[in-house]
Amino acid sequence: MTKVWMITGAGAGLGRAIAEHARGQGHTVVATARDVKAVEDFDDALVLDVHDPSSVEAAVAEAVRRHGRIDVLVNNAGHGLVGAVEELADADLRAVLETNVFGVLRATRAVLPHMREQRSGHIVQMSSVGGQVANPGHAAYATAKFALEGLSESLSAEVAPWGIRVTLVEPGPFRTDFAGRSMRYAEPIPAYHDSPAGQLRGRFASQDGNQPNDPVRAAEEIFLAVEDPASPLRLPLGPEAIDKIRTKLTKQLADLESLPAHVRETGYSAS
């Protein structure tokens, strides 16, 4: 069955890779971006600025007008922010949350009435290994992605009665421009220069263009997850993401097992 895919931030990175793969598989792709020139090579290219509710609503309405339905929404638009917690300015943190959380909410809420009416659909949330594992210097990004994970876990259960599915994609380092033009940096505090948070700045700069994983392979795996009715809620991508998440969950389970018995004894006593 040919599906209609609507993808935010489709002009570059994983968004473009997903759009190109879905198009290559014969599906209809509504490619959106803040600057429509970034997606003008697609037959359906629309302006969509996730910061602007009217822009989101207009793009969704136009996609439905053209095709009668939206089968897959890929919430890909986003950016990162590096800096220790003490270095983060309120405005910079709000900007990350505005794009990576509230932007996703706007697009999701705009599409859901149509998916509920057609009683089917799939929402792909582009999270990150940073939505499971919070690294020093990446607190702002982890805050946004942890929020997206919680939002999407609830959403998955909420919309299941209408046949709507949710996939949280958790990539590790893929060779996109995320570590380049999509990354922002907080004003540094010298005391953090040699700390793990400070060292993350240099790692991102050196990583840009040298990431070990191929966006085309990510797009293929995401497409397969959408096509597979038994695919799980979370889709880690790449060995780095899988290994980091496994290490964290193993440690969490070990911590849980090591708790003293009295931490369960928190109910009111009969006396």
Rank of each mutant, 00 (worst) to 15 (best):
W5F: 11
M6H: 07
A19D: 11
H21P: 00
H21E: 05
R23C: 01
H27E: 12
V30M: 10
A31W: 07
A33V: 04
A38Y: 04
E40G: 03
F42M: 13
F42N: 11
F42Y: 12
H51Y: 11
D52G: 01
G80S: 15
G80L: 11
D90L: 10
A91N: 05
R94A: 13
T99K: 07
V101C: 03
L105M: 13
L105P: 00
R106S: 04
A107W: 04
T108Q: 05
M115L: 13
E117L: 08
Q118G: 00
R119N: 12
S120C: 14
V129W: 03
Q132A: 13
A142H: 06
T143F: 03
A147K: 05
A147S: 15
E149L: 08
S154L: 10
S156I: 06
S156K: 11
A160S: 09
L168A: 03
P173W: 00
P173I: 06
F178D: 01
P188Y: 08
P188D: 10
A191N: 02
D194H: 12
S195T: 15
L200F: 12
R201I: 13
F204H: 00
A205S: 03
A205T: 10
Q207A: 15
P212D: 00
D214L: 02
R217L: 12
A219M: 06
A219H: 02
V226D: 02
P229L: 14
S231L: 01
P232Y: 05
P239V: 04
P239E: 14
I242T: 14
I245K: 10
K251C: 00
S258D: 15
L259M: 13
L259T: 07
P260I: 11
H262E: 14
R264I: 01
Y268W: 14
S269F: 07
